[in-house]
Simulated assay, not measured.
Amino acid sequence: MAAGPVHERLAALELVDHHCHGAVTTGLDRAGFESLLTEGEAWPGVSPFDSPVGVAVRRHCAPLLDLPRHVPPDVYLGRRAELGTAEVNRRFLRAAGTGVFCVDTGYAPHRVTAPAELAEAAGGVAYEVVRLEGVAEAVAAGGVEPDAYAAAFRAAAWEAVRRPGVVGVKSVAAYRTGFGLDPVRPSSAEVTEAARRWLARGGRLDDPVLVRHLLWTAVDLGRPLQLHTGFGDGDIRMHRVDPTLLTDWLHLTASTIPVLLLHCWPYQRQAAYLSAVFERVYLDVGLTLHHVGPARAGAILAEALEITPFRKLLYSSDAYGVAEFHHLGALAFRQGLAGLLWERVEADELALPDALRIARWLGRDNARRVYRLPGGLVDDG
């Protein structure tokens, strides 16, 4: 498909990545790099390079390392090591064309860039998204009595969101319990009893009552709430992370705070439905886009946009670990959305001015508005 004005607009647009993570700051051998290419386990004799995302890295990332497209993995990794991690990160982050990053700092099994470091490498700015499970687990680790847990968690959460640069909060309830929860706010007595059980056994926060309490605390905080849905690593039970399982909870809460459904695949159509019927529900298809690559990004976006109001879809990469994913996510989004919108323009299903406006909304302005970022309250048509 020939490039048109929509492609040009999206290629030049400075994106807002409303959900991502840092990039590793240390060198990676082949095993280390391959472990970050996949959401699954490393399997003997099966290389993640032999997957859609592995092929996309060799096709679309190799030229930024001064290599031909489709070079063998060992050549790619050798050049990566030769340049060094800092230079590799700088090249991919600059190539992404992202001006604003909203960084989830709650997941860091590797040494990764802090938001300020990510922004410096990219030549942009960064804000923080606080993962609430981490706040709760820090409260527990610090020592608290069961009957004091609710107040202590609430105070710690408020302190976290008041830090400079924090623009939202996130929950990984999808990983911990799934969404088939009682939607009603738990009572104080229920929270105390659940805290007693959890504090006695320790470990990560996965008690259904306390997860419900966490989600309702997020409502009280009044900040945009990101919720992981759909695609993730092997800790997910996919049938439990369909976002429509949140419907009853959304009926109780969704007029109070923005709720942002992250990733969504294979439930992008279900998420689209929720965005179409609840005023303050939004979605993205981040993480999915770099895993399917530019070749299939348009198909994923087409399904997400079948009924989604155009003010309700945001761009995210959900890149973690390798800076290639910040670049691939942006590239897949730009190319996939441009192809989709231009096809509709050529079919006279969409006027060109509308397509250009939609491109700008999805890539930048929707996130600015939801997170109240600078320039986000101005609608420039």
Rank of each mutant, 00 (worst) to 15 (best):
R212T: 11
G234T: 13
R296M: 14
T85H: 03
D365Q: 13
V100N: 11
A194Q: 05
H326L: 12
A108T: 14
A11H: 12
I257M: 01
T229L: 07
T288I: 05
F101Y: 15
A160F: 12
T85E: 12
L301A: 05
P164W: 13
L215K: 03
H326C: 05
V139S: 09
V370P: 07
K170M: 12
E87P: 05
W361A: 15
W216E: 07
H21N: 08
A138Y: 01
Q226Y: 13
P52E: 08
S255Y: 02
L328W: 02
G298D: 04
G363R: 11
V161S: 02
V75F: 00
F231Q: 11
G329Q: 05
P72I: 07
A62H: 05
F278V: 00
H7P: 00
V378E: 07
L274M: 11
E145S: 11
T26A: 12
R59C: 04
R334L: 14
D74Q: 12
R280W: 01
P224L: 06
V6D: 01
A136Q: 02
V285N: 03
D354G: 01
A302Q: 15
A359C: 09
V139C: 08
T247E: 11
W342R: 14
R311Y: 01
P208N: 08
K170E: 08
T38N: 12
S171P: 00
V167A: 04
L245M: 14
V16W: 01
W43Q: 12
S35K: 13
R344N: 10
E87F: 06
V209K: 14
E349C: 10
W158T: 13
C61V: 13
V209T: 15
V112P: 10
V167K: 02
G321N: 06
R196L: 08
G286Y: 00
V169D: 01
Y315L: 12
T308C: 07
R91G: 13
R79P: 10
A304S: 06
L93C: 08
A254N: 06
R368D: 07
V211S: 07
D206I: 00
R162T: 00
V55W: 13
Y371N: 04
L283R: 04
W216V: 03
T113K: 04
Y267W: 14
I236S: 03
D182N: 15
T25S: 03
T105V: 15
V24T: 13
A62E: 07
S317M: 05
V71C: 14
R369F: 07
A157I: 00
T38Q: 13
R30N: 03
Y149V: 12
